[in-house]
Design a protein around this nucleic acid. Sequence first.
DNA 1: GTGAAAGCGCTAACAA
DNA 2: TTGTTAGCGCTTTCAC
Lengths: 331, 331
Amino acid sequence: MTIKELAQELNMSTTTVSRVLTGQEKKYRISPKTALRVRDGARKHKFEPNQIARNLRLQETNTIGLIIPDISNPFFANLARTVEIELRRRDKMILLCDTKDETSLEKESLHLLLGRKVDGLLVAPVGKKYDHFIKDSKVPVVLIDRYFKDQTIPFVTTDNYQGAYSATKFLIQKGHQNITCIQGLGHTSVNENRILGYRKAMEDHKISNFIRISGAGYSIQNGYESTRELLQKRNRPTAIFALNNQIALGAMKAVKEAGLHIPGDVSLIAFDEQPYFELLSPALTAIQQPMQDIGKVAVETLFKLMTGETVKNQMLKPNFIERESVKSIES
Amino acid sequence: MTIKELAQELNMSTTTVSRVLTGQEKKYRISPKTALRVRDGARKHKFEPNQIARNLRLQETNTIGLIIPDISNPFFANLARTVEIELRRRDKMILLCDTKDETSLEKESLHLLLGRKVDGLLVAPVGKKYDHFIKDSKVPVVLIDRYFKDQTIPFVTTDNYQGAYSATKFLIQKGHQNITCIQGLGHTSVNENRILGYRKAMEDHKISNFIRISGAGYSIQNGYESTRELLQKRNRPTAIFALNNQIALGAMKAVKEAGLHIPGDVSLIAFDEQPYFELLSPALTAIQQPMQDIGKVAVETLFKLMTGETVKNQMLKPNFIERESVKSIES
DNA sequence: GTGAAAGCGCTAACAA
DNA sequence: TTGTTAGCGCTTTCAC
């Protein structure tokens, strides 16, 4: 059923029907009687306005594109959930794209979304290139988690530098010196800042000779393989700093398979927190990101952008959770 | 830039432009020269056809609605990922709705999606009511994970009965009798079938007097609270069967907090498999669902439906993974 | 208080 | 081989 058919049935113009259905009866002083008839008719026929037609006419879709690297990574899954809830409150829907951390898929997603005339874009970019966001995107976009240096696209993220610094410092204070980082994707801001924090802590404590960075990729696989290699080294690290939850998982697996123990043989700290970390063997010491807040603030920022307000970048504070995966070393 | 503007600039009709841009130049025998000019012009101006207008005209949106109860549950996050990949291959996009397992939000989502004229619906329903899917949905829908008995909406799911039966049988063969189930949402088919499998195994082994079902909800919270209660009982179970991954997590947490041990004090089996299960303390014995297949088959089924083919329901086989969370009891 | 009609950007039937 | 035109379903300007 279309608005035209409904109007015909009620013997009035589509204009009138449209007006009451979009809540403008006051504005146009439509008689209560007419309004009632319209509403009744609409209900009776279960009339649901065709949003596509509406979108075309109004030049807005009430749809936001969400571009993330991996929805099966609990970090992003949780983020997606918060975003969904926040957007629903504002009567917007999500078009979801998973880029598998591939720039080509990211570009494709961007154009697909732009073609569908989304009103805004929330994106955790792959991070390798960003020209497409600068040049092609005519709609407001806010970056989540990862951002681009020297670019003006607003972002909301965790203070990764700070988080990594305090984790590394914690290890050092426990007596560790031979601390290796297993990193995610080297070109992402997230990774860079975590590395920077790690590096700075090492330098501040005069052990920059021990700085080692290994691996590439935010995956269980990478954590696993990198750790396997590390464990075979002559000068095996006493502590591993895994730069996300997946890497930490892979690292644990490798240690276990090697017949070694955490923290007895190696200590481990993870960036990211997950509900099951406290149940692992041993319970994992971790840096928790304020995920709820990230999602909330990102949506708020996007809406400000869409209404032309000025926005500022947000760097939210992480939270250190000490558990059992780090051993004290006597010096 | 619109197709009209582009056509004007090229001094030809929108028809011609449209035809070459939609790959119909052969069909209409458009001269190669013209086709080339169109393509060049489009590239030069970065023309991207307005999909909204296209959708309105074509009466199809190339969009599929995905309705799930909780995207932060890794089971559904993984499902979403597979679905995304499969749909992208077919040039469709996902509109994502998270219902928080609330029927009201599910209904709302359905109408929102219908209003946006999605071409099809993939839904893991809350399961309490389903009238809205039967009556209101004019587009093809396939149910994932959960389904409705006595209804004709096609579904793809795991053989939950079978999975639960074999898990229970496994426990019994290890000498357990006092086995309690912690369930998810009682009204879901998933839950019912798992309970049925559990029940049948208990009955087949003449220990139906030990049948106990506790809890309500697919959450960590529910697993935690239910287990706490169970542990305080005089006749505490020797084994717990957690009906999903979240419940299992909560159960482990409660056992740990009570100062007890798995499997020494209680054995535990989880429905669902997660990458970290093997790293928990102890490694969790689990029933693995073929998640990739579920997503793939669901998308295939939906497409058959959309092209008018006949489809049949699918019940995929689960896989039992024995690890360390079950103790043998001497009789 | 209500309605006629234009137009959002595209495709396709029909015409040439 | 190309173009004219109607129309997808809605909102809104302008007119009454």
